[in-house]
């Protein structure tokens, strides 16, 4: 349980970097994945998951009003769920990665919806801040900015715990799907890698 709360706190801090504070790249999947994997005792799965999530959505960029799926949450949930499945069900690393990614990608999209909701709520603050300034309360900007930082931490923290709990409910047969169907998960994983590199390749060509 301590491990889960520690990971959730870490995700809360790292997720704040996505938009709210800095955008230093702490929130990139290639950083979040290994760190969450490390908390769960399996940084290797975190590295592979981080690389995959980073590259799958590398071409999706936050231009204007568009909100991309949250890659930090996706990498965190995937690394945590994959590590959990390897420890509990003894699945091989590639099966754990593919199944956990298949589960975590919708989580990233769900978190994007939460982000959109937050942005709608922020719209209400514009009028509130204008009214505060008109009343001579100049420090309200600082106050609301601090609230925004705490809020994104709390939302990420709770979301990660909920998503991880949901991942633990995935039945054993789903984690062993490749074994049951007689599929080489290593070969299937190579196709995911190819998709990732194709995305990266296209991202350099796209802006020419």
């Amino acid at each position: 349980m301590t491990q889960i709360f520690l990971a959730a706190a870490l995700v809360g801090v790292l997720s704040s970097d996505t938009i709210t504070i800095g955008q230093f790249m702490f929130s990139r999947p290639v950083v979040v994945g290994p760190l969450v994997g490390l908390v769960f005792g399996n940084p290797y799965i975190g590295f592979i998951v981080g690389v995959c999530v980073e590259l799958i959505w590398i071409r999706v960029i936050p231009v204007g009003v568009s909100v991309p799926p949250d890659s930090a949450i996706t990498a965190a949930v995937s690394a945590a769920a994959g590590s959990y499945a390897m420890g509990k069900f003894g699945v091989d690393v590639y099966s754990a990665i593919i199944v956990s990614l298949s589960f975590a990608i919708p989580c990233g999209i769900l978190f994007k919806m939460a982000e959109i909701k937050i942005r709608h709520r922020n719209s209400l603050l514009v009028d509130k801040i204008k009214a505060s300034v008109a009343a001579g309360r100049f420090d309200r900007t600082d106050f609301y900015t601090a609230v925004a930082v705490v809020r994104i931490f709390a939302v990420s923290f709770v979301f990660f715990i909920a998503a991880f709990f949901a991942a633990t409910q995935i039945p054993s047969c789903c984690w062993h799907i490749f074994e049951i169907l007689g599929i080489s998960s290593k070969i299937a994983m190579r196709f995911v890698y190819i998709l990732c590199f194709a995305q990266l390749f296209e991202s350099f060509i796209k802006w020419k």
Binding site: I19, T20, V65, N122, S123, L125, I129, A148, V149
Partner: peptide, 22 residues
Amino acid sequence: FLLQALWSYKGMQNIGFLYAIK
């Protein structure tokens, strides 16, 4: 670094800009 903390559909980065230039 907190320019986008209160990004909104109404004013986008306006609150963040005010926070930075304050």
